[in-house]
Amino acid sequence: MTAKAGEVTAVMGTNGVGKTSLLRAISGRHPYAGGTVMVGGTALDHPSPFGAARAGIAYVPQGREVFPMMTVAENLETGFACLPKDQHHVPDQIFDLFPVLHDMIDRRGGDLSGGQQQQLAIARALITKPRVLLLDEPTEGIQPNIIQQIGKVIRILCEQGDMAIVLVEQFFDFAFDLGSDFYVMSRGEVVFNKREDVLTREELYAQVLV
């Protein structure tokens, strides 16, 4: 699988086919027996989560993993860990993308709604200035207006052209609207791959349901 900067690479398939395991392996959270993870032509030899983050891979997990007792500001600051000290600040762009986080900067993460926590989790990942952003089910349990906001943020990040986004998503229409390159998995393997310009909605839908 190849994910290009400035694009959304959508990984799809039914439950249990290995989509989350794939993202966890890429991000250093899950061991893998074969294959190579490469960022910008540089191979990462079974990296730790910290090593993957230092290499430019940011992971927004299913379930968000926001620190509930820490404030929004403190949650964002955990993204500093893989950055040099002179970059330990929250860029203005974070609050441009997610204005609600500025309004709730002193609120505890556990007091935020599910949609607000999802925005916080994505913002925290962006703090690390990733070259690759891995998103695992970002719309799960989120109200429709927040889903629209997250979709808008993903489009803005793509337009900037310096980040590859890998999206695992069960919400078919969300993934189809955003994706440039589509991969379908079954039993731990990629069984289908086509780009948006030669793919119809009906063809992808049929593959996902197999």
Rank of each mutant, 00 (worst) to 15 (best):
M185N: 07
F67K: 07
L120Y: 01
Q148C: 10
L135G: 05
I150S: 09
V37R: 06
D96I: 02
D136F: 05
G141I: 14
P130W: 01
T200W: 13
P99K: 10
R29H: 14
L22C: 05
V191N: 08
D162G: 10
N193K: 15
T71K: 09
H30R: 09
V198G: 12
F50D: 14
Q62T: 03
T20I: 12
Q87M: 14
Q148E: 14
T139I: 11
I165Q: 00
P144D: 14
V66G: 03
Q119K: 12
L76R: 03
E203I: 08
L167C: 09
T42Q: 15
H46K: 15
L178G: 03
L44S: 11
E77N: 06
F98M: 12
R24C: 06
E65W: 00
F98E: 01
V39F: 11
L83N: 09
M12D: 01
Q93G: 07
A52S: 10
V100R: 09
K152R: 14
V208I: 15
A10E: 06
V166C: 00
V100F: 01
F176I: 13
I165E: 00
D106R: 09
K19H: 05
Q117H: 03
L83D: 04
T9N: 03
E7T: 15
E196T: 12
M70K: 13
G6Q: 02
E159G: 05
Q149H: 13
S27P: 05
V100N: 06
L44A: 09
G161C: 14
I94H: 02
D96E: 15
P84E: 06
V60N: 02
A55H: 01
F95W: 11
G109K: 02
K129Q: 13
K152W: 10
A55V: 05
L204N: 04
P61H: 12
V168L: 10
V168E: 13
Y205V: 00
R29C: 00
I147G: 05
F176G: 12
P31E: 06
M163G: 00
